[in-house]
C-alpha cells in the first residue's frame, strides 16, 4: 500500500500535486479545532481590517476573523461532501450491482429510473425543496436530499462493470459451487468494483460541494452555519465587493477552487491507476 502510494507520487504528477493541495486543505480544516473564536459569534474582532499579522486573512464586516472563519467553513464544507459521497455511494452500489447482476426486467426498470435522475435538472428541484422547507432546512437534511439525487451517474457505471464481470468464468464457477447471489456479488465482484467506486467518490464529493456552495451563496441553506458558500453569501449581503473588502470573498473563493482542483486531480490519477495501459504509457514502457 505504502509502496503504491510512493510510486504514484513519483510517476504521477496529478497525484503528487493533488495530494499536496489536499493536505493543505485538510490541514486548514483541522485548524478549526484551535480557533480562538467560536464560529457563530459576531463582532469578536474589529470589523473590516485588511490582512495583517494579527489577522492573516483580515476581518469581515461582521467582526469575524476571516482566517478562523474559513477553517470552520472548510471543515463543514468537506464534511458535507464526504457525507453526501458516502451515502450516495451506498445507493449507487446497491442499484448498480443489482441491475448489473440481475439483468432483464429488473435492469431495465432500474436503468429507466436511473436515466431519469441523470436527465432531470436537479438544481430547480433543490431550490423548490428549499422554498417549501425554509427554516426547516439544515445541513443534515440537505445531505440526505443531495445523496438521494446524486447516485445515478455512478450506478450506471457500476452496472456496466458488473455486466462484464458476470460473463467471466469465475462467476460461473461460483454459481456452480453453490454460492448465493449476494455472496457472489459481495465476495467475488465487489473487489473489482471498489477501485472505480473510489475514483467516482472523489468526483461525487466535487459535485456535491459545488451544489452546496451554489445553494449557500444564494442563501438557500442554513446561513448561520459557516461553509464556504455561506461565507460568500454574507460577503455579498454586506456588498463586500463594492465596499472594497476584497479579502472577505477572495480567500474563500481561492480555497474552494483549490479544493475542486485537488479532488479533480486525485480522481484523474485514480482513474489512471485503475487503467494499467495509461500507467505503462506514463512510465515510458510503450502501450497505447
Amino acid at each position: 500500500m505504502l509502496k503504491t502510494l510512493r510510486d504514484l507520487f513519483r510517476y504521477n504528477r496529478e497525484f503528487a500535486i493533488g495530494s499536496m493541495l489536499m493536505a493543505v486543505i485538510l490541514g486548514m480544516a483541522a485548524l478549526s479545532a484551535f480557533s480562538p473564536y467560536p464560529p457563530a459569534n459576531i463582532y469578536v474582532v474589529p470589523p473590516d481590517m485588511p490582512p495583517s499579522w494579527a489577522h492573516p486573512f483580515g476581518t469581515n464586516s461582521r467582526g469575524q476573523d476571516v482566517f478562523w472563519q474559513l477553517t470552520f467553513a472548510m471543515r463543514n464544507t468537506l464534511l458535507f461532501g464526504f457525507a453526501v459521497a458516502f451515502l450516495s455511494r451506498l445507493l449507487s452500489l446497491l442499484i448498480g450491482l443489482v441491475a448489473g447482476y440481475q439483468g432483464g426486467l429488473t435492469d431495465r426498470v432500474l436503468m429507466s429510473i436511473n436515466d431519469t435522475f441523470i436527465v432531470i435538472p436537479l438544481f430547480p428541484l433543490l431550490i423548490l425543496f428549499y422554498f417549501v422547507m425554509r427554516d426547516y432546512m439544515n445541513w443534515v437534511l440537505l445531505t440526505l436530499v443531495i445523496a438521494c439525487l446524486g447516485w445515478a451517474y455512478d450506478a450506471r457505471l457500476i452496472r456496466s462493470i458488473m455486466m462484464s464481470l458476470k460473463t467471466r468464468e469465475f462467476t460461473q464457477t461460483s454459481v456452480f459451487s453453490g454460492m448465493k447471489m449476494h455472496e457472489i456479488v459481495v465476495r467475488e465482484h465487489l473487489p473489482y468494483v471498489l477501485p472505480i467506486v473510489f475514483s467516482t467518490t472523489l468526483n461525487n464529493i466535487n459535485w456535491s460541494i459545488g451544489l452546496e456552495v451554489t445553494l449557500s451563496v444564494l442563501g438557500f441553506t442554513d446561513i448561520n452555519r459557516p461553509t464556504v458558500g455561506t461565507m460568500i453569501f454574507w460577503a455579498n449581503q454586506h456588498s463586500a465587493m463594492v465596499a472594497g473588502v476584497w479579502w472577505w470573498f477572495v480567500f474563500p473563493t481561492a480555497f474552494i477552487t483549490l479544493t475542486f482542483i485537488a479532488l479533480f486531480l486525485l480522481a484523474v490519477s485514480m482513474n489512471e491507476y485503475i487503467d494499467p495501459r495509461s500507467r505503462l504509457a506514463r512510465m515510458g514502457m510503450g502501450g497505447a
Binding site: 459545488g210 456552495v213 460568500i232 473563493t253 477552487t257 475542486f260 482542483i261 479532488l263 479533480f264
Partner: peptide, 18 residues
C-alpha cells in the same frame, strides 16, 4: 481547459464578475 473543468459554474462566474 482541464483546470477550469472541476470548478463549479458559480465560482467561475463570480471570478469573471470580480
Amino acid at each position: 481547459i482541464m483546470g477550469f473543468h472541476p470548478v463549479p459554474y458559480y465560482i467561475i462566474a463570480f471570478v469573471l464578475l470580480i
